[in-house]
């Protein structure tokens, strides 16, 4: 087995093309980052200033954060979101890759049909599943529990699809060689397949985390007590009948996403680049 260098690091010295790339990326930054920065800066403004169209606050204040952290149950919402996201991420990483692997690397009758059935579950809007889910949850006592919050997202079809595509890029010989060496079927998946799709796995992890972080309708319905609310459900409380506390929404949004973005920033090498080993006989 040979370690192959991938497209990861360009060797060339800066050329005209690189300069163009920097210019384009910098221009794009304005478009991509401006709304985010505005949101972030708004979190430091008193409510009146939020409505004034200045980017920088005249008076910087931490009141919004103070209010969100100490006068609402935000820490609890955050914890709940974290628990749900953690539960589901573990399940998603394992099951989606296992199913994705099975659908590409194992031959069995009905493989395409199974894939299509799994994919088709993506095509029914979850909004229409909440009523049956809730009926089910009351029957099994899942209402107001972490399990109840998490179960719909444990094996998302999109994750299966993603991992299937990543396993497709791996050469078949690799697994046949493993089989000849007497590696068990689970071992082929766990020890040979999985390490090779780490970039996909990491991307799936972050997507799933963000998806859970923003899920609204189901967490709203399944959480009956205030102590089981997640961040998006809690933040919805800032919109009342007669007014919306945009200062608090901005502060809560900032508090909720900055950690996610930081995790992404710090671990992006692992998330995107991983260390890609493409084993080829040679």
């Amino acid at each position: 087995m040979v370690e192959l260098e991938t497209f990861g690091e360009p060797r060339r010295r800066p050329t005209a093309a690189t300069v163009v790339a920097y210019v384009l990326l910098t221009l794009g930054t304005v478009v991509m980052f401006f709304p985010f920065v505005w949101m972030l800066l708004s979190a430091f403004k008193p409510i009146r200033e939020i409505f004034q169209l200045t980017l920088l606050p005249h008076t910087w204040t931490l009141d919004n954060f103070r209010q969100v952290l100490f006068q609402t149950a935000f820490p609890r919402w955050f914890l709940n979101s974290l628990v749900v996201a953690a539960i589901s991420t573990v399940s998603v990483l394992f099951f989606c890759s296992l199913v994705g692997y099975t659908l590409t690397r194992l031959r069995f009758p009905g493989r395409d049909l199974v894939f299509l059935i799994i994919l088709s579950t993506l095509m029914v809007p979850t909004e229409m599943l909440v009523i049956p889910w809730y009926v089910m949850s009351t029957q099994y006592g899942w209402v107001n529990t972490y399990w109840g919050l998490a179960f719909p997202g444990l094996i998302p079809a999109f994750g299966v699809f993603l991992m299937r595509q990543f396993f497709q890029t791996l050469p078949r010989d690799l697994f046949d060689a493993g089989r000849v060496d007497g590696v068990s079927e689970f071992g082929l998946f766990w020890r040979i397949g999985l390490p090779l799709v780490r970039p996909g796995l990491a991307a799936l992890g972050i997507f799933n985390f963000v998806g859970n972080w923003n899920a609204f309708l189901w967490p709203l319905i399944i959480a009956k007590s205030a102590s089981m609310r997640t961040v998006p459900v809690g933040v919805a409380l800032f919109s009342g009948e007669a007014s919306t506390a945009w200062n608090l929404i901005m502060a809560a949004s900032a508090l909720a996403i900055v950690p996610v973005l930081l995790v992404f920033f710090v671990f992006q090498r692992q998330i995107i680049e991983g260390v890609v080993l493409t084993g080829v006989k040679g």
Binding site: T29, F33, N214, P232, S253, L261, F265, R269
Partner: peptide, 17 residues
């Protein structure tokens, strides 16, 4: 890394904001 985080930021921003 910085560019990546910036281009990723809209995706994590809550819908209301």
């Amino acid at each position: 890394p910085l560019f990546r985080a910036i281009y990723f930021s809209p995706y994590v921003t809550p819908a209301a904001a």
